[in-house]
């Protein structure tokens, strides 16, 4: 059951260019959290910005009762979030939305682009627990804009990075790295989050080899709980009805979505 809580900030630090990591205590929320879900955060008491900001669960420590976020400074809201200090209280709703399906005993590929890597760490952790063979492909424009790979390495997941400028790992698109270095016959399932053209390339690759997977989508949100119908999107152009990204998603089966 989702709830509304005041999370106690444990730490909030910069981990890359415009990239921050915040950990807060919210035991009730942490206990309910599943990979792919998100929290909805009020970044200040003022009327501007007025609305909450949705952020993915980057990691959850169920023993400690903490939730960690990885966020990119994109505007006023995320900038205000970066000003929070330890011991301050964070107004947060969550966990919200439908997360990823957790497969068991399979060979899975997780493809993250930019800050789209955020939901994939918690996902990798839960997939590792379920005896999956996990490989994470992480793409960014430059290594100084990316989070450390250590957290993935520490989980025992395989991880490969791709950067457009070649500052770390493969030089080029993460999806080109995927095509070059992954044997499709050795994969059972895909998970992806990031810019839509990247997710589209992953989905196209998966379909080509008859493989299934899941994507995580974004839309502007107001309520975050399915009440305002603001985050609507047609999954396919031929669909009549819209889905609510906040409630029906943000995670959807790859074959249900036409990416743009």
């Amino acid at each position: 059951m989702p709830l509304s809580a005041k999370g106690l900030v444990i730490s909030n630090q910069q981990v890359g260019r415009d990239l921050w990591e915040m950990e807060f205590l919210a035991p009730g929320m942490a206990a309910e959290s599943k990979p792919g879900q998100f929290v909805h955060i009020r970044v200040g008491d003022d009327h501007d910005p007025l609305l909450r900001r949705p952020l993915s669960l980057y990691d959850v420590d169920q023993n400690l009762g903490s939730i960690t976020l990885l966020y990119k400074i994109a505007g006023r809201g995320t900038n205000l979030l970066s000003k929070f200090e330890a011991d301050q209280l964070l107004d947060v709703m969550g966990p919200l939305g439908r997360g990823f399906t957790l497969v068991e005993g399979r060979r899975v590929i997780l493809v993250g682009g930019g800050v789209g890597i955020a939901p994939l760490l918690f996902l990798a952790r839960e997939l590792q627990v379920r005896q999956n063979e996990v490989t994470v492909l992480y793409g960014g424009s430059s290594s100084d804009e990316m989070c450390s790979l250590d957290r993935f390495v520490n989980l025992g997941a395989g991880i490969m990075a791709a950067t457009l400028d070649g500052s770390a790992g493969f030089r080029g698109l993460v999806t080109d790295m995927m095509k070059k270095s992954i044997d499709p016959l050795s994969i059972d399932y895909f998970y992806t989050c990031g810019p839509e053209p990247m997710m589209a390339a992953v989905a196209e690759y998966a379909v080509q080899y008859g493989l299934a997977g899941e994507v995580s989508l974004e839309e502007y949100m107001a309520c975050g709980v399915g009440a305002c119908l603001g985050c609507a999107r047609k999954l396919k152009a031929s669909d009549n009805a819209y889905v609510k990204i906040c409630k029906d998603g943000p995670v959807f089966p790859m074959d249900a979505v036409e990416l743009r």
Binding site: L50, E219, M221, C228, G230, N240, Y242
Partner: peptide
């Protein structure tokens, strides 16, 4: 009713615009 095309909402100073279209 299916409602209007996305995007349907946008935040503005101390407010928001919505065009849900009575879905």
């Amino acid at each position: 009713r299916y409602g209007n095309l996305a995007p349907r909402i946008y935040e503005t100073p101390a407010g928001m615009l919505n065009a849900i279209g009575l879905e």
